[in-house]
């Protein structure tokens, strides 16, 4: 009946947010959401499996904190840090996660934190090419990606 319950629920919520919380809009939104999730089911057969729901708030909190921290760092670099030993550079990191959704989440996290950008994922080698604004310590970045994000993502999308 409902192949993607989460998608359906968030579509209904979005519909109500945009058009007002009335019973009529709820029925209309539910219709649209159900048909949209059927269309989605015919588009993409593989379904993300989320194992440990209780770890998601932890991930969100970590990312929230990191975004604030790197915003401050990058703002400092952009305003004052010209020269002073700042070296931008490319960085290749081997990854262990294979789940598509987990990779997508990791890409969103890394790109939306200022200071690091996800360039390319190599399916064959299972490595990712990053570009980093301030590549002072290579191992620090590898450690950040592997231990801070990847471990948690592997636990969530087991």
């Amino acid at each position: 009946m409902l192949p993607y319950p989460l998608l359906t629920a968030s579509l209904i919520l979005m519909w109500l947010l945009l058009s007002g919380f009335t019973p009529g809009q709820f029925i209309l939104g539910t219709l649209v959401a159900v048909f949209a999730s059927w269309a989605m089911a015919s588009l993409r057969p593989d379904k993300p499996k989320i194992r440990k729901w209780h770890l998601i708030p932890k991930l969100v909190a970590i990312v929230f904190f990191d975004i604030i921290r790197s915003n401050i760092a990058v703002a400092g670099v952009l305003l004052f840090g010209r020269g002073k030993g700042r070296r931008p550079g490319f960085l290749t990191i081997p990854l262990e996660i294979e789940d598509r959704t987990a990779l997508a989440v990791l890409a969103i996290i890394l790109t939306s934190t200022p200071g690091s950008a996800w360039l390319e994922y190599d399916q064959h080698d299972r490595t990712v090419l990053l570009h980093v604004l301030d590549l002072l310590d290579k191992n620090e970045w590898i450690d950040l990606v592997k231990n801070r994000y990847e471990k948690l993502l592997m636990e969530i999308f087991a």
Partner: peptide, 18 residues
């Protein structure tokens, strides 16, 4: 101000995150 394209790609994320 940033000199190369790959560095410039980091700058707009300030505006789009916080």
């Amino acid at each position: 101000r940033l000199p190369t394209f790959y560095e410039r790609i980091h700058a707009p994320t300030l505006g789009t995150s916080w």
